[in-house]
Structures are given as structure tokens and as C-alpha cells.
Design a protein around this nucleic acid. Structure first.
Lengths: 226, 226
DNA sequence: CGTAAGAACGTACGTCGTAAAGTACGATAG
DNA sequence: CTATCGTACTTTACGACGTACGTTCTTACG
């Protein structure tokens, strides 16, 4: 069977092929027919290893969550949350389609994502956060990670269309008519061209949030407001 | 012409019908054929008033941005940003499909959204923010608004499927097998069931960010780090 | 070798966006 | 009044898509 021309399909092989296909061609290019072609198989053969396309996408989304590893257990809550946020953010940037899937596929959250969320909540509870502040901290950090990843990824997609690079995309934008109505926006784009690394921007915002949460935590059992 | 059985189509009429169709049936139910049916017209007739579907969606997205009105001009920067953020957030919640469009349709940002972004940047510049901090402040707040809206909207969509309400959706989730592996997640869902209003959660995070930015601004011309 | 189970295939249906060509109609010109 | 023409809409068609269904092939075991 190892020399056999036809290695039988498997969920593993399907998911792996789907991941690389999405990584290289983009999520919208990932169709059952194309995925089948990539595997040397007709589209319908895939359905023996995957319930439907939504199931496949759910599995892909969860695979990305499985890539982020846990923070050191003994660390203080701030560092635990920070570690997980940074790791998750990095994983989402590694697979540009992942952020969109996390946002879209709400029904089929897989075990890896569930585990990540549960662990974050556990960290907050162990630190002694009261319920309201705990809920807010959880969602705020979630927002920051997902939001920043989405923004970075859609911006990158803009620049990675066939035959375009970042400078070209910016030039196209700056060539739009009537753009002089938005001088700040033009300046903003120019600034981004000169400062292409937005890596530290994510962590700056994250620390802003963590420090703010720490202050709110210290301020009182129910948070500083309401 | 008012009594005429057939009022001729117009961009206005098309956009209005598309908005209500998306509001009631969801963005995925908004197809050219269905929109045509809603207007008493075949699908292809719409293309006389809209370049293509992407153009239509861009216009819809921009309409939402046009709904948010400007903050008082004389107010301090924090209040200006806060006002715009809250208004934008509210507009995005009014039209559950809007957040997804803002995230997806990166190429066709319309004049209203451009104006909003330009105004936010202008506020920061007028306040004297240095370029780096200005960029970060802009993106961080943008993230929070869009991210929170998306989260709220997808959560609501979960509960508003035909024949389901919030309690039912939560019950379905809590009935998943193997859920005892995620006790914090279960507790989190329960907490959300007992505290359905997440209105203040958005503003809490927003103030966290604004206060943090203010502190970073006061700390030095380049921000406190790097 | 025979055979049965499971894997892969081929075909088909209904949906989508939209290109291209056709049709109806109201206004203007001869 | 008739011919012409631009506009508004319809008809038809094409190539994608996800996937239901029935058939064929492969392979392991007796």
C-alpha cells in the first residue's frame, strides 16, 4: 500500500490540503471541486471524510486555534493573558483566512477554540476578577486580538492581489479622484508606507488594555463604574 | 406619473429595498433575483442603477456610515472620539449586516466612511498627538468599535434564526456533549443569560482605551514605549 | 476465486452573479 | 400619422458553486 499510486483519502489529508490551498490561493478559492482536484479526486469523494463544507471550515478554524500553545501555568494573570493573546494573534496572521472564519462560523466552534476561551476565563477567575469585570476583560481582549488580525489580514490581502504590492495598492488608493477632501487619510496612508511594521502596534494596544484592566481590578470589586 | 402602476427604478429605490431586505432576511438572503422580486422587477433591471453586486454592497455599507453624525466641534478630543465611536457602534447594531460589510469590502470604501475616518484622524492631530500614537489610537478605537459590533451581531444572529430565541440558542449550546471539559465557558454562557444587556460593556472598553491613550499622550511625545 | 463493504466517481439539480441579446414603450422628428 | 430612437425592462444563457443520488471500482477476507 505505500507504493500504491492511490493513497486513500483521510480527514487528515483533506484538512491539510484545504489549509495549504487556502493559504496560497485565498479562502474564496477553496471550493470542493478545486480541493478535490488538488487531492487527485472528484469533489464528492471528499464528503466521505467531511460532513459538508461548513464542517470542513469549522475544522480548519479549529486547527489554527490548536496551534497556539498554553502560557506558563505559574505566571501572573497579566502575563498569561498577554501570552495567549500574542500567540493567538500570530497564529491568525500565519493563516490569513482564519480570522474571517472565526468571525463567520459561529455555530461550529471546535474543541481547540473552546479550550482557549475556557483557559482565558479560568485565568481571570483564578486572579479573582469579579464576574462583570471578568466578562468585560474577556471580550475586550478577544476583540482586540481578532480585530487587529482582521485589519492586518485584509490590508495585506489588498496588497497581495496578483501583480500588486503594497506600494502599488497605496498608489492606487492615492490616485482616487476627490481624495483631497480627506487630507488626514492621505497623510495616514503615507505614514503607513513609511512605517510598514505594525507588529508593535498590536502589543501596544494589548498592553493598554491589560494595564487598564489591572487598574479597574484594583479599583474595586465591581469595577470602577456602575 | 404618481398614479402610474410602475414607478421607475432609481438608485435610491434599489438601495432602500436592499437595506430592508438585508435587515429582515440577512445579508446572505440578499441576492439580485430576490431584490428584483422585491422591487417587482427582474434581476437584470437592477444593473441599470448599480454597476454590480459589489457596488451595491459598497453603497449599502457607506449608507450606514452616513447615519452617524458628527460630534460637537468644540469638544475635547476624548469626547469627540467617544461620541463618534458610540454613534458608529449604534449604527452598526441597527443594521446587523453592516459590520461584516465594513470588514469584507475593503476595496470600495465610500465617501461617508472616508469622511468619518478623516474626521477621527483630524481630531487626533488637532489634539497634538504625535504620528505614531495617532496611528495607534486610530486603529485601536476602530478595532474596538468594529470588533464589538461584530461580536454582538453574530451573537444576535445565533439567537434570531427562525424559531429560536436567545434562551434556546444557549440551551442548545449547553446541551453539547463533552461540555463539562469547559466549566468556565459554561459559567460564562450562564452569566450572559442572566445579564443580557451588553450595552455598557462596549462603553467600558471604550473608556478603558481612551483613558489609556490619554495617559500615553501625557507620558511623552512618542508615547511611553519604544 | 468469489464476494461484500467501503471508497471514489459521474451525473444532475438548484442556486448564484452577470454577459448579451431581445422586447416594449414613450418621446421626438419628418 | 408614421418612423426613429433611447430608455427600461425581460429573456436567455453561461460558468461557477454546494451537494443529493446512484453507479462503479478497489480491496480485504473467505
Amino acid at each position: 500500500m505505500p507504493v500504491n499510486a492511490r493513497t486513500p483519502l483521510s480527514r487528515q489529508r483533506v484538512l491539510r490540503a484545504a489549509t495549504t490551498l487556502a493559504d496560497t490561493d485565498g479562502l474564496d478559492r477553496l471550493t470542493m471541486r478545486r480541493l478535490g482536484a488538488e487531492l487527485g479526486v472528484e469533489a464528492m469523494a471528499i464528503y466521505h471524510h467531511v460532513a459538508n463544507k461548513s464542517d470542513l471550515l469549522d475544522a480548519l478554524a479549529d486547527q489554527v486555534a490548536a496551534e497556539v500553545d498554553d502560557p506558563p501555568l505559574g505566571a501572573p494573570w497579566k502575563e498569561q493573558l498577554r501570552h495567549r493573546a500574542v500567540e493567538t494573534h500570530a497564529a491568525l496572521l500565519r493563516h490569513p483566512w482564519a480570522a474571517m472564519l472565526w468571525v463567520t462560523q459561529t455555530s461550529g466552534v471546535g474543541p481547540a477554540r473552546m479550550g482557549q476561551m475556557d483557559a482565558s476565563l479560568a485565568t481571570l477567575r483564578a486572579a479573582g476578577f469579579p464576574p462583570t469585570l471578568m466578562d468585560r476583560a474577556f471580550h475586550i481582549i478577544q476583540n482586540h486580538v481578532l480585530g487587529h488580525a482582521m485589519q492586518a489580514v485584509t490590508f495585506a490581502a489588498q496588497a497581495s492581489a496578483p501583480g500588486r504590492d503594497l506600494a502599488r495598492a497605496a498608489a492606487d488608493f492615492l490616485a482616487r479622484p476627490g481624495l483631497d477632501t480627506y487630507p488626514e487619510l492621505v497623510a495616514h496612508v503615507h505614514w503607513h508606507l513609511e512605517h510598514p511594521s505594525n507588529e508593535s502596534s498590536f502589543e501596544f494596544g494589548l498592553d493598554l488594555l491589560l494595564d487598564g484592566l489591572e487598574r479597574a481590578f484594583a479599583a474595586g470589586p465591581g469595577g470602577p463604574k456602575r
